[in-house]
Design a protein around this nucleic acid. Sequence first.
DNA 1: CCATATACCGTATATAATTCGGTGCAAATA
DNA 2: TATTTGCACCGAATTATATACGGTATATGG
Lengths: 163, 163
Amino acid sequence: MFNAEEPVRITIDRIDRKILKLLQDDGRLSNVALAQRVGLSASACNERVRKLEQEGVIESYHARINPSKLGANLMVFVEITLTRTSSDSFAEFSDAVRKTPEILECHLVAGDFDFLIKARVPDMPSYRKLLGETLLTMPGVNESRTYVVMEEVKNDNKVLIKG
Amino acid sequence: MFNAEEPVRITIDRIDRKILKLLQDDGRLSNVALAQRVGLSASACNERVRKLEQEGVIESYHARINPSKLGANLMVFVEITLTRTSSDSFAEFSDAVRKTPEILECHLVAGDFDFLIKARVPDMPSYRKLLGETLLTMPGVNESRTYVVMEEVKNDNKVLIKG
DNA sequence: CCATATACCGTATATAATTCGGTGCAAATA
DNA sequence: TATTTGCACCGAATTATATACGGTATATGG
């Protein structure tokens, strides 16, 4: 989003961390309010934020949408095991995953399955459909195990920022 | 964040969905830019956004921070099984989870374990510590299985908005 | 047919973002 | 030590944006 080109960042100091923490909590905090809270002038604060964006420390900003208000009430985790045939089945599978909007996350893991997927769908019939028509037909998929989420105990995805 | 009190929302129309999609992608999109993109005046658009916030459709806004720039390079999933003794061990465990900042997500699931946790830590020694000193000492924890993430294939956590 | 509610518009005002010149300080250099 | 250079910062000016408000069109129900 910010075309971050990996420049050498010497230090992320205490003020930077405070900025990151505040913007992680409230992505629409105004620059003047942010500046006040970290004890800088608006212009100095603005510079820091833009730098953090350009360095890729701040990746992007997003509104968090309540899925249940849009009828996506069912969240599932799916463990996927691939067949051991093709060497590039990994790449093909990854491509297919990225094209599937119901999939919110997919990670290659070490352990007794290959991928862990997190998905959201309206209801069980929809999931039945997603599993049968999409997930299980993806290239190289051998096996799957589904875990239905009954309650979200914690789901903020906020990185711990020390300082 | 917006003190959403579950008012009756009759409809989320095409324009609302467009707004949600745009703000989910760019949480700092200015209201005038947003208004242009959805074909409304700034004031009308502003009203809609505030309504969506008050209704809880838009839950909050957040900057997305790059964890690896802050030295949190290791992501793990942990399956947790509780002992079947206490009936409120679930609540105690949940409380402990919410107090642990390394835990980004924790879900109660149906299947052969109880909770699925997603966590981020700097490295393997840190995880060793988190597991031994925090996760396994949480109330009621019986068993755990850890899956280390080798690659994040997809990780946007964006809800699919139709329309 | 009229009253009411709603969604919208455009304008005006209040806030905020951003640009810019200038200052002080610290580290490197002579 | 004196000098230069590069930062990070500040405050003021400019530009842009958010927000409040009055007014209009349209749909709905009495």
